[in-house]
């Protein structure tokens, strides 16, 4: 009896991880298959699809756009989110709870609702300002900054809570002014949290689909949107190669993050 329960437990663990990892592993395997139509076993292995993928303009440009958007959105969102987290933790703020809920809001509102709302808002703003916003880099970046704020606030708040304040107090007692204390003491101590926030923000932006879907236009598409439009017609090794590049990028960023903060502690 106890034996069979142990078996049930083990098979549930194996089934969970198989469900989570099988599709990711499968994409990587398929990207090396020689034949264009997916079938098993492979007729041989090749790297040709990676060249193919890069030569398809929608993927190459989507990749570059996604990198640009993620990098700029992270560069804007992480400082804003860090400043907000610091103020929330240290300043006497009226309505702190409400502000904190507002800042975490982009995580709570479903991407579909936020995405359509933002699309309508952009169209309205275009009429007011007489300027293109949808399908521009700035329009995409603004939307993605929204994604980076809640992650930054969450991760930096967690580091602020775990921080020993005596070093800050010592610096202040020795005559350092508040901005100096922040730049020379607090910020260096927050580094793991800020780095984790930056990497998470980058990944969230890079892989985002729902918020982005209506904001792209011809000639300016992000990689996930380009992949989705392709997949609505077919799945083949070229797409698998593109997806594998995304998997490698995310894995690399996670491993770097893990060196700064133990991922098992921040999530």
């Amino acid at each position: 009896m106890a034996e069979s329960r142990g078996m049930f437990f083990k098979s549930a663990v194996v089934a969970s991880y198989a469900l989570m990892l099988a599709p990711v592993v499968m994409v990587i395997i398929i990207s090396f298959f020689r034949q264009e139509i997916i079938s098993f076993p492979p007729e041989g292995l090749t790297m040709q699809w990676y060249v193919n993928a890069w030569e398809r303009r929608e993927f190459a440009r989507g990749f570059v756009t996604s990198l640009q958007v993620a990098a700029i959105a992270t560069a804007i969102g992480v400082p804003l989110g860090t400043a907000a987290a610091y103020a929330l933790a240290r300043a006497k703020l009226p309505g702190r709870e409400a502000i904190s809920t507002l800042l975490l809001g982009p995580l709570a509102v479903p991407g579909v609702v936020a995405g359509t709302a933002l699309y309508m808002f952009y169209l309205r703003a275009e009429t007011w300002l007489d300027q293109d916003i949808t399908a521009t880099l700035s329009g995409l970046v603004a939307a993605h900054v929204l994604l980076t704020i809640p992650w930054t606030v969450r991760l930096v708040t967690a580091s602020l809570q775990g921080m020993d304040r005596s070093a800050e107090e010592a610096a202040a007692n020795l005559g350092a002014r508040p901005p100096t204390v922040f730049m020379r003491v607090t910020l260096p101590m927050l580094r793991p949290g800020v780095v984790a926030a930056a990497l998470f923000s980058f990944i969230q932006s890079f892989e985002n689909l729902e918020l982005t879907l209506l904001l792209v236009g011809p000639g300016r598409t992000t990689l996930p949107v380009a992949m989705l439009s392709y997949l609505e017609f077919r799945m083949d090794p070229t797409l698998a190669a593109v997806a594998t590049v995304q998997i490698l990028l995310v894995t690399a960023m996670m491993l770097i993050t893990d060196r700064f903060v133990r991922l098992s502690r921040v999530i």
Partner: peptide
């Protein structure tokens, strides 16, 4: 990892 690679990549895996 599967959470962060995105839904599109994972759907592609399921299609395969």
């Amino acid at each position: 990892l599967p959470l962060l690679v995105g839904n599109v990549v994972r759907s592609a895996g399921w299609m395969a």
